[in-house]
């Protein structure tokens, strides 16, 4: 497992039980709510595997171009932030959600602190597995820190001029 199982996540702005499992290697038996690495997912897809409910994991250095044509078949995408100063997954999220119009769940996990939540939410992430030591219930307050933004919101694109 890429991450040890824990109890809580933030989903659409509220604390909720965790529902996804993240796998570095493809398990023998795939099941809904599992996420597997992007290249494995694409390989299985090409081979005709049903992949019902199976999501995929994107790392910062993944090339997303091959993904676009499969977007409608992907139930959820898990973005792996290995170090919280690494901003690549923000661009992945923005591209998938805003430029490609992906409607499904975008989950982040890894080195995720409450200080990133507003930014991640605003590039389209709606599900968060915080780092083990983070207080999930306190972190939810981060969503109400800001009521004003210059750029697009999580759903509503606005002009660059605000």
């Amino acid at each position: 497992m890429a991450e040890p199982p824990r109890e809580l996540m933030i989903l659409d702005g509220a604390v909720a039980p965790r529902r996804y499992t993240l796998h570095d290697d493809v398990p023998d038996a795939l099941a809904p709510q599992m996420a597997i690495p992007c290249d494995a997912w694409l390989r299985l897809r090409e081979a005709g595997a049903p992949l019902i409910g199976v999501g995929l994991i994107l790392e910062g250095d993944c090339d997303l171009r091959a993904l676009r044509q499969h977007l409608t078949a992907i139930p959820f995408v898990a973005l792996h932030i290995t170090k919280f100063t690494d901003g690549r997954c923000y661009t992945h999220a923005r591209r998938i959600r805003h430029l490609w119009g992906y409607p499904g769940t975008l989950l982040v996990y890894g080195d995720v602190l409450r200080d990133q939540l507003v930014y991640l939410w605003r590039v389209g992430v709606n599900a968060f597995y915080l780092r083990q030591d983070q207080d999930v219930r306190a972190a939810v307050q981060a969503f109400s820190l800001f009521t004003a933004f210059y750029q697009y919101g999580p759903v509503r694109p606005v002009s660059a001029a605000g």
Partner: peptide
């Protein structure tokens, strides 16, 4: 206009 655009831009805070 660029000041407004870049201020707390969610995609580019961890370049």
């Amino acid at each position: 206009l660029l000041r407004q655009y870049k201020e707390l831009h969610p995609e580019f805070m961890f370049l």
